[in-house]
Design a protein around this nucleic acid. Structure first.
Length: 733
DNA sequence: GTCAAACGCTTTTTT
DNA sequence: AGCGTTTGAC
C-alpha cells in the first residue's frame, strides 16, 4: 500500500493516533494521503470503517475520495461516512430532528433564496430596499452565523448594523416558519445541537471516533468548532490543508484555523513539498507570486521535472482579441495533436469574463464546457420547477410559494398576493392553513376573482400532494410540469430561448431519472447541495473548460490559460486598497498557476470594455513577480509604478521576521512580529467635530495602518469612516 | 388590477 | 442571464 510514496507521505499515512496536521502544497498528493490514511486505518489498524468520518468541501472531492477508497479497500470502505460539511451536517440534523425546531424534511435555501428572503424582510420591516441593499445585509447575517453569533449577540456599532440585526432576527424567524435552513444554518445548527445536548454530542463522538478533514484552510469558525466538538478528548483527527490556497475568506473561511489547530491540539505536523503535477518553471512562477504575501510561510515546492515549456505571456488589444488569441492557441495545440481539447482550461476572475469567450467560440464552432453561476441550477425554469417540488414537499416554504404563486401567470397579481398573505398571517396554520380554508369553502376576506384563482392554485397543490407517497421524484416532476401548466407555458414560447428552456427541463428530468430511488425530500436535498463543478466530468464532451479561478481549485489540466491579468481584474479592484484582500488575490493567482501540468498562458489586454466603459488597465503586478527567464514575452511587460503597490515598502520590515517555518518552531518560541502602532489621537466615546458633517462621537479607531482611521457616528449624517486628520476634538477650535 | 414588452443594472469569488 | 422598473394595453 505504501509503494511509490515519498517518505513524508508515508509518515502522514502511518502517523500515530491523535491529532495530525498535514500541510500539503498543490499537487503534492494530498488526496492520495487522505485516502491511504483511511485504508491504513482499516487494513493495518483494523479500524471499523463505519467509525470513520471524512469531510470535504465539495461533492466532487467527496466523490473522488469515495472512488479511491473503494479502489484501495473495496467493500470494507463502503461504510466510511464521506461527504461535504454541509451534507454531513444536513444528515445529522435530519436524523436528530426531534431535538430541533425543524422537521426531518426541512428545505435548504441557497443564496438566491436567501437574498429573496432578505429583500422581503427589508420591505416588510418598512426599510426601503433601495436605501438598504440586500447584499450587504445578507453578508452581515451570514458572517455572524459563520462566527456563531446569534441575532441576540449581534454587535451594533452603527446604524447599518442595527438594520442587519433587525433583519437577522426576522429572517431567522421566517426560516423557521418555512421549515427552512440556509447553508450557514446547516453548520451552526449542528454546533448548537451539540452544545445544547451533550448526550447527542457524546453519541456522535463515540460513533465517529476518527475524523479526517480536507482543505482545512477553508474552514470557518462554525466548521472549526464542529470539528473541535466532534474530536472530543481523544482528538483522533487528521487534517490536511494549505494556507496558501485559502481563497474563501469572503465566505468566512479563515486560514488562521490552521495555526489555531496547532495551538489547540499540538498535532504531529507533516509538510508535503514535492509536487507531482507541474514542472519546476510553473512552481517557480507560483512561488514567486505567493512569497510576496506578508503572512506566507516559506516552503520549497519542487518537482522531478526540472524544466518544461516556458510560461507564455501575451498582450491582447482588447477582450475580443483576447478571446480570439485563446481560441487560436487552443486550435493550434489541438491540431498539432499535442493535447486534446478536454485537457485545456481557461480560467478567469469574474464570471462576466466568460461572455466574450463564449461568443467567440460559438462563432467559430469550437465546443466548450462552461462551469459557473449562470449554469444549470441558476436557470429560471429549473428554479421554478424546483420551487414547485419544494412546495409539494413542504407547503410552508414561503420563498418558493412567493416565487411560483403566479407562474405561469394565473391571474394572481401583486395586490391579491398581498391580501392573501395579510390574511394568512392571522391563520394558525399559516399559508397552508389559509389555502386549505379556501379549498373547504370557509369564509375568507378574499372574494371574487382573487378568491377563485387562489382556490384553484390550492387545489392544484393538493392534487400534487396526493401523489407524494406513491411517486418517485421523476413522476412528481412530470406531475408538476403537467398540473401547473408550466410545460405548456414553455412550449408556447417558440423562440430560441423557449427551446433552450425545454432542453434544460429535459436535462433536469434526466437528473430526476437518476434519483428515482430517493424520496422527494432526499432528491431536493441532493439538488440543493450540488454545484456545477460537481458535475464537471459528467459532460464528457471533448471540449475545453471555462471556469473561474475559484471553481478551478482542486482540479488540474495539462494546459491552463489565465485571462484578464490586469490591475483591477486580477487583482480585483476591491483588493487594490486592502492588504488582506490583496493577499487573497495572490493566493487565487497561486491556485490558478498550480492547476497546470505543462503549459501556462497568461493574457492581459491593452484596453478592456468593462461595465460599458473602456478601461486601460496596467498589466497585473503578478506578472511582474514572475522571473523573465522562465517566461516567453514576460520581459517586455510594463508594470504599475511602485508607489501604487501600496504595501511594497512593508516587505522589508514585515515579511522577513515572520518568514520562519512555524511548523518547526516549538510553541513557546513563536515570535510575535513587531508592529509599529502609531499613538492614537482619538478614543472611543470621544466627542469630535468635522468641518462638513458637524458633531459626532467616536465609535472606533484603527491606527494599525499608515493612517489613523476613525469610525464616527455623526448626529446628522450617520456613521462614517474617516482619516483622523479631518477631525477635531470637540471644544478645540 | 393584471400582464407583456422594453430598458437599465448588476455580484468578485460559492458550499 | 435574470431582475426590477416603467409604460401601455386590456
Amino acid at each position: 500500500m505504501l509503494d511509490g510514496m515519498n517518505p513524508r507521505q508515508r509518515e502522514a499515512v502511518t502517523a500515530d493516533f491523535g491529532p495530525v496536521l498535514v500541510v500539503a502544497g498543490p499537487g503534492s498528493g494530498k488526496t492520495r494521503v487522505l485516502t491511504h490514511r483511511i485504508a491504513y486505518l482499516i487494513e493495518e489498524q483494523g479500524y471499523p470503517s463505519h467509525r470513520i468520518l471524512a469531510v470535504t468541501f465539495t461533492n466532487r472531492a467527496a466523490r473522488e475520495m469515495r472512488e479511491r477508497v473503494d479502489g484501495l479497500v473495496g467493500e470494507m470502505g463502503k461504510r466510511v461516512t464521506l461527504g461535504t460539511f454541509h451534507n454531513v451536517c444536513g444528515m445529522i440534523l435530519r436524523r436528530e430532528h426531534e431535538h430541533t425546531a425543524f422537521s426531518r424534511d426541512f428545505v435548504i435555501y441557497d443564496s438566491q433564496d436567501q437574498i429573496a428572503l432578505v429583500k422581503k424582510v427589508l420591505i416588510d420591516l418598512g426599510l426601503d430596499s433601495n436605501k438598504h441593499q440586500p447584499w450587504p445585509v445578507l453578508n452581515a447575517i451570514s458572517g455572524a452565523k459563520n462566527e456563531l453569533i446569534g441575532p441576540e449577540q449581534f454587535p451594533v456599532p452603527n446604524y447599518d448594523a442595527e438594520i442587519a440585526r433587525r433583519v437577522y432576527l426576522e429572517y431567522d424567524k421566517r426560516l423557521q416558519a418555512s421549515d427552512a435552513r440556509d447553508f450557514d444554518d446547516l453548520l451552526t445548527h449542528v454546533v448548537r445541537l451539540f452544545q445544547q445536548h451533550p448526550d447527542v454530542l457524546e453519541r456522535y463522538q463515540r460513533y465517529y471516533s476518527y475524523a479526517l478533514v480536507d482543505e482545512f484552510q477553508d474552514t470557518n469558525m462554525a466548521q472549526y468548532e464542529l470539528i473541535r466538538l466532534l474530536a472530543g478528548e481523544a482528538a483522533n483527527i487528521f487534517v490536511v490543508g494549505d494556507p496558501d490556497q485559502s481563497i474563501y475568506a469572503f465566505r468566512g473561511a479563515d486560514y488562521r484555523n490552521v495555526k489555531r489547530f496547532q495551538q489547540d491540539f499540538n498535532p504531529a505536523t507533516i509538510i508535503l513539498e514535492e509536487n507531482y503535477r507541474s514542472h519546476q518553471y510553473i512552481l517557480d512562477a507560483a512561488t514567486a507570486i505567493i512569497r510576496e504575501n506578508p503572512e506566507h510561510i516559506r516552503r520549497n515546492l519542487f518537482s522531478q521535472r526540472k524544466t518544461g515549456p516556458k510560461l507564455t505571456i501575451h498582450e491582447a488589444y482588447n477582450e475580443r482579441d483576447e478571446a480570439q488569441y485563446v481560441l487560436n492557441a487552443i486550435s493550434d495545440l489541438v491540431s498539432s495533436r499535442e493535447y486534446k481539447r478536454s485537457e485545456i482550461a481557461v480560467l478567469y476572475r469574474l464570471n462576466a469574463q466568460s461572455r466574450v469567450l463564449e461568443e467567440t467560440f460559438v462563432r467559430s464552432g469550437m465546443p466548450y464546457r462552461l462551469v459557473g453561476a449562470t449554469a444549470f441550477y441558476g436557470r429560471k425554469e429549473i428554479r421554478d420547477t424546483i420551487a414547485f417540488m419544494r412546495l409539494v414537499n413542504n407547503p410552508l416554504d414561503r420563498v418558493s410559494l412567493d416565487r411560483v404563486i403566479n407562474v405561469p401567470p394565473r391571474g394572481i397579481g401583486d395586490k391579491t398576493v398581498e391580501q392573501f398573505y395579510a390574511w394568512a398571517d392571522t391563520m394558525p396554520g399559516g399559508v397552508w392553513g389559509a389555502l386549505q380554508a379556501l379549498v373547504h369553502g370557509d369564509q375568507t376576506p378574499l372574494s371574487g376573482r382573487s378568491r377563485n384563482t387562489l382556490t384553484q392554485f390550492a387545489e392544484m397543490l393538493n392534487r400534487l400532494r396526493l401523489k407524494l407517497d406513491t411517486s418517485n421524484p421523476l413522476e412528481l416532476l412530470d406531475a408538476v410540469l403537467e398540473e401547473t401548466g408550466y410545460m405548456e407555458y414553455l412550449q408556447r414560447d417558440r423562440t430560441d430561448q423557449g427551446q433552450q428552456r425545454l432542453d434544460n427541463i429535459a436535462e433536469f428530468r434526466r437528473v430526476a431519472y437518476e434519483n428515482t430511488e430517493k424520496s422527494l425530500a432526499g432528491f431536493l436535498n441532493e439538488v440543493a447541495l450540488v454545484s456545477d463543478v460537481d458535475n464537471l466530468d459528467k459532460g464528457n464532451a471533448d471540449a475545453p473548460t471555462f471556469l473561474t479561478l475559484h471553481a478551478a481549485k482542486g482540479l488540474e489540466f495539462p494546459v491552463v490559460f489565465i485571462i484578464g491579468l490586469e490591475e483591477g481584474i486580477l487583482p480585483h479592484r476591491r483588493a487594490l486598497e486592502d492588504e488582506k484582500e490583496m493577499a487573497e488575490e495572490r493566493r487565487l493567482m497561486y491556485v490558478g498557476l498550480t492547476r497546470a501540468k505543462d503549459r501556462v498562458y497568461m493574457i492581459y489586454t491593452f484596453r478592456r470594455m468593462m461595465w460599458g466603459y473602456y478601461d486601460m488597465n496596467m498589466p497585473s503586478r503578478f506578472i511582474g513577480n514572475i522571473p523573465p527567464e522562465i517566461t516567453l514575452g514576460g520581459a517586455r511587460v510594463p508594470q504599475p509604478p511602485a508607489e501604487h503597490l501600496f504595501y511594497q515598502p512593508k516587505w522589508e520590515t514585515k515579511w522577513e521576521p515572520t518568514n520562519t517555518r512555524q511548523t518547526e518552531t516549538p510553541k513557546a518560541a513563536k515570535p510575535v512580529p513587531a508592529r509599529k502602532v502609531a499613538p492614537s489621537r482619538f478614543q472611543k466615546g470621544q466627542q469630535v467635530v468635522h468641518q462638513a458633517f458637524g458633531d459626532g462621537v467616536v465609535i472606533n479607531t484603527d491606527s494599525s495602518g499608515d493612517f489613523e482611521i476613525v469610525d464616527v457616528l455623526f448626529k446628522q449624517h450617520g456613521s462614517k469612516k474617516l482619516d483622523a486628520s479631518f477631525l477635531q476634538p470637540k471644544g478645540e477650535a
